[in-house]
Structures are given as C-alpha cells and as structure tokens.
Amino acid sequence: MSRKITDLDQLTEHADVLLCDVWGVIHNGVNPFLLSVEALKAARGRGQTVVLITNSPRPAAGVIQQFGTIGVDPECWDDIVTSGDVTRQLVMEAPREIYFLGPDRDTSLVEGLDLELVGPDAASAVLCTGLFDDETEQAADYRELLAGFREKNLPFICANPDRVVERGDRLVPCAGALADLYAEMGGETRIAGKPHAPIYREAMVRARALRGSVDKARTVAIGDGASTDIRGAADNGIVAVFIARGIHAKQYASGRTTDEARLKEFLDAEGLRPEYWMEWLA
C-alpha cells in the first residue's frame, strides 16, 4: 500500500520540484482550498519549485485569470503548464480546416494559429476542449456527431484529457469523455495533456529554466486523478502523491473518513501504486 502522509513538508528532503495538479487539488472551480494553497506557498518558502500542471484546455493565461476570479494566491506557484499550452503544437501539426468542439470560453487556445475554423461537414480535423454545455450534457449526447467524424476518419485532438472535473460539489464531464467515446468507435485521438508525455516534458523544461538543473528522481507529482495525474507520473518516471479527497472520493470514503482498505482496492483495480497518498494537500 502507498505510504500515507499528512503534511507536504514530510517530502522536503526528497523533492526539489513539485508538479501539482490544479482542479480538485488547489481549487474546485468555485473556491480555492486554502490549506493546499498555503502548503504550496510554504514549499516555495523552503526552496522547492512549484510548477502547476493542469489539463485545462486554455493556455496558462486563462488559468491565471481564473485564479484571480476565485481567489487563488499567485504566491503558491512558480510556473504553470496547461494541456492547452502543449495541445497548440498538435493543432499546428494538424490539417488547417478544423471543427472546434467546445465552449466559446476556450477559443483562446487557437488564437494566433494559422487555421480555419469550419463546420463539421467541412472539417479535416476536430479540436475538442469540452462539451458545449457541460452543465446539462453528457458525452453520449455527442455519439451521432462523433460517428460522422469517424466515418470520415478525422483525427480528434483532445485538449483536456480529464473525463470529469469538480465544479463546486458536482462532477461535470470533460473532453476526455468524448475522446474515450471516439476511441471506442475506432477513431484516432491525439492527446498531449496528462497522462501523456508532452506535458511532463514541458513541465520539466520550465522547472530547469527556474532552477538551472533538475533531477527527475527529486521531482514529485501531486494529483487526484488516477488515470491522468497518477498514471502520468508512473508512466513518466516521477514519484506521485495521490490526493484521496478528489474526484474519486466516493469510491472509498464515508463522510470525511477514507477507508484505506477500499482505497487500496481502488488503486489496485486501476493498476496503480503511488508512492504516497494524502487526504488533502496540506
């Protein structure tokens, strides 16, 4: 079983760089988690470098803007890498005629890129940042649209690999759920965010720019998503801290108590064994 820790400072001697998830770890889309924010500020005060690594489909500027809106202290991070940042490279390598599948708030992802946004019938590729209305829709509502893309063998670029994300006290579907459905249909998906390597490579580039040199063995990834944060850390050779009270909490928690036996069963079923776990980042 993974080792339980209660304070991030227990890892001070083991880590120079912290790659920390955002949604579900330092905020829920509505409110910041103040203990988590303070933990990261304290880590920076001890000389550790904090790079936030998020599957947000928007470039980092959009994440910073959201932080300002909901009140996340900018002193809790040194740099931010988003799935949107690394997905721009996939878009530049794709055909120019692209169907943009997602809410208008995410269109900053394609600003400044040489492409043409077209309707579904004229598209040579699909760029998905999420559902049009994640408050009322589910991935299954898009089956007919995706079937049309699959019939034409269009590549499906997924800018947010998360299947669900916390928004307040609810879970809402994300672009990853649509990518899963498209893949089930036999379609080609192209993904650069967690758990895939491009976002981790970029995060380490940013960390080296801040520190001069970085030993991956002294890097720790923190997150609440099993198939994204923890799988990504494992696949990229990075020590992981699983935050239990995130999107998977209903699988093993009763009230404010985590059943460690059920947690182990959950992680075993996912084929994962993170080195550490915490209830909350604190």
Rank of each mutant, 00 (worst) to 15 (best):
M1N: 12
M1W: 11
S2E: 06
S2C: 09
K4C: 08
I5R: 04
T6E: 14
Q10R: 12
L11I: 11
V17I: 13
D21F: 04
S36F: 05
E38S: 15
A39W: 01
K41V: 11
R46F: 08
T54S: 13
N55I: 01
P57K: 05
G62Y: 07
G68W: 06
T69W: 11
E75K: 14
V81F: 10
T82N: 06
T82R: 07
M92E: 14
A94T: 02
P95K: 04
I98V: 15
L101A: 06
G102H: 06
D104V: 14
D106Q: 10
S108R: 10
P120H: 11
A122G: 13
T129M: 03
F132S: 13
F132H: 15
E135L: 14
Y142H: 00
F149P: 01
N153V: 09
C158H: 05
P161H: 02
R170N: 11
L178I: 00
A179I: 03
A179F: 02
Y182S: 00
T189G: 05
K194S: 01
K194P: 04
R201P: 07
A207M: 06
G212I: 02
V214N: 03
K216L: 15
T219H: 04
G223M: 06
D224L: 07
D229M: 04
I230G: 00
A233D: 00
D235H: 11
V239L: 12
I243C: 08
A244T: 11
A244L: 11
H248N: 14
Q251I: 09
G255M: 08
E260C: 11
L263E: 02
L263K: 04
L263R: 04
K264F: 12
L272I: 08
R273N: 14
L281D: 01
